[in-house]
Design a binder for these strands. Structure first.
Lengths: 242, 242
DNA sequence: TTAATAAAAAATGTCGACATTATGGGTGCG
DNA sequence: CGCACCCATAATGTCGACATTTTTTATTAA
C-alpha cells in the first residue's frame, strides 16, 4: 500500500486539482488582487472545461480568495489595509488560543515534534543566512527561502497540533493561507535581510523554552507578538491596494 | 433604492440559492448525516441542473457540511461524538474571544444593541414559556421556538458584533451553523421543557450585567459556559450517530 | 468634441449529452 | 453454502452548445 498525502491529486476530480493550483496562483500573486478571472484564460491555463473551474472557484469563494458577482463572473478577492489588519490580528488570537490549548494538552510526542521541527528549522536558517549574504545566487536564495518557509510553517504547526482540535486547526489553516497572500505580495516588492531571520530565531528559542516549561501565558503572548511582527512591516509599506 | 439583506436570492445565481436551501435541509436534518446526495434527487428537489448543484455542493464541502469521494458523489457530512465535542468547545473558545474583544472595543451603540436584543428576547421567552405550558398547541410551540431561537442568536450576535472583526465573526458564523445541526438533530428526538429557558434567561441577565460593567473576564467565562450548556445535554443523549 | 444611442462582440450561467466508473444481481464454481 | 466473477444498471464527472446578459465598439445628434 502506498502512502499518499492529503493533497494527492490522483484520487481527486479536476475541480479538486484546480483548487490547489488556482489557490497557489492567487496566494503567490500570479493572479493579482481584484483581477478578473475570465473562463477562457482559466481554461487555457488549467486545461479543463468550465464545469470543474466553476466548482473550484465556488470553493475558493467560501475561503474568501475570490469574489463573485452574478453574470459578471469571478474576481480575485481584493486586498485592503483593513483586511490585512483584521486577518493578522485574528490569526494571532487564534494561534495564541491553539498554543494555550496545546500547552494544556500536549504530551511527550508533542514536545518531541516541536524540538524536531525546531532543529530542522535552525539548520535551514543557517543555510539561508549564508545564501542571503552571498548576493550572487538569487535563484538558490529563493529556493532556500521557500524551504525555510515550509519548515517555519511546520514548526508552528507542530506546536499548534497539540491543541487536538481539527476544527480549530482548520480555522488556523484558512487564516494562514489568507495571510500568506499578503506576505507573498509584500515579498514581491521587498527583499529580506538577515536581520529578520535572526530576530525570528530568537523568538523561536524563547517560545520553545516557554512551551517546554509549560508557561502558557508567556507562550501565548510570545506567539501573539511573533505573528504580529510581519504585520507591522506589511502595514507600513503600502503596496498595490488594487 | 430598495434595501435588501445579504441573503437576497434575486441577485444570486442558481448555485447561490441552492446553497441556502441545501444548507437548511442539512442543518434541519431533512438530509440525514452520512446520507448519499444523489444528483437525481437533488435535481428534483431544487429544480436545477447538475452544474449549479455541484457548485453548491462544492461550497458546502468547504464549510464541511458535505463530504465528497471521487466518482462516488457527495454525502452529508457524518456526525460523531468527537466532532460534536470539538465543534462546541471551539465555538465556546471563539465566542469567548469575540466577547473579550467586544468588551474592549464596544461603544455606546454596541451597548444599545445588546439591551435592545435582550429586551426582544425576554418578550419572546415569556411568550414561549406560556406556549410550552399549554401542551395543546404544538404547532405554535414550534413556531414560537423558532422565533425565540432567532432572537437568541440575535442577542449573542449583537454582543459579538462589538469585536469589529469580520474575519473572526465569519469563523463564528461557520461554527454556529455546524453546531446548530447537532442541536437540531437533538431537538428532533427530545422535547424541551421550561426549565431550560429559565436557566437560559438567568445566564443572559448575568452576562449582560458583566458586559455593561465591562467585566471582561467574567463575561468571557459566562459565555464559555453558556455555550457548553447545550453541549452537555447533547453529549449524554446518544442520537443516531450514522 | 462630447454625450447618448445602437449594434456588435464577448462572457457568463445553465442544460443536456456522453464517456467513465461504481453498484447490485445473478450465475457458476469450488 | 459461500465466494468470486461477470454483466446490466445506475450514477458520476466532464465537455460542448445555447440563451441571456454584460461589455465594447461604432454611429449619430447636439
Amino acid at each position: 500500500m502506498i502512502e499518499m498525502g492529503a493533497d494527492d491529486s490522483s484520487n481527486e476530480n479536476f475541480a479538486g486539482q484546480v483548487v490547489n493550483q488556482l489557490k497557489l496562483d492567487i496566494l503567490n500573486g500570479y493572479f493579482t488582487p481584484g483581477e478578473k478571472l475570465k473562463m477562457a484564460r482559466l481554461k487555457e491555463r488549467y486545461h479543463v472545461g468550465v464545469s470543474p473551474l466553476r466548482e473550484a472557484l465556488s470553493q475558493l469563494l467560501v475561503e474568501q480568495l475570490v469574489v463573485v458577482e452574478n453574470q459578471r463572473g469571478f474576481r480575485v478577492h481584493p486586498i485592503s489595509k483593513a483586511e490585512l489588519a483584521d486577518i493578522y490580528h485574528t490569526r494571532a488570537h487564534i494561534e495564541s488560543l491553539c498554543v494555550k490549548l496545546a500547552v494544556e494538552q500536549g504530551d511527550d510526542a508533542w514536545e518531541a515534534g516541536i524540538v524536531a521541527s525546531a532543529h530542522q528549522l535552525k539548520k535551514a536558517a543557517v543555510l539561508l543566512n549564508a545564501t542571503l549574504s552571498d548576493a550572487a545566487d538569487s535563484d538558490s536564495a529563493r529556493d532556500n527561502m521557500q524551504k525555510w518557509e515550509a519548515l517555519h510553517h511546520g514548526f508552528h504547526s507542530a506546536i499548534t497540533s497539540g491543541c487536538q482540535s481539527p476544527t480549530l486547526l482548520d480555522v488556523r489553516r484558512s487564516l494562514y493561507e489568507k495571510a500568506s497572500r499578503y506576505r507573498n505580495l509584500w515579498l514581491k516588492q521587498h527583499m529580506v535581510n538577515n536581520q529578520v531571520f535572526d530576530a525570528n530565531q530568537k523568538d523561536h528559542d524563547e517560545l520553545m523554552d516557554a512551551l517546554l516549561s509549560r508557561n502558557s501565558d508567556l507562550a501565548c503572548q510570545l506567539v501573539y507578538e511573533h505573528l504580529l511582527g510581519p504585520f507591522k512591516l506589511l502595514q507600513n509599506s503600502d503596496f498595490d491596494y488594487a
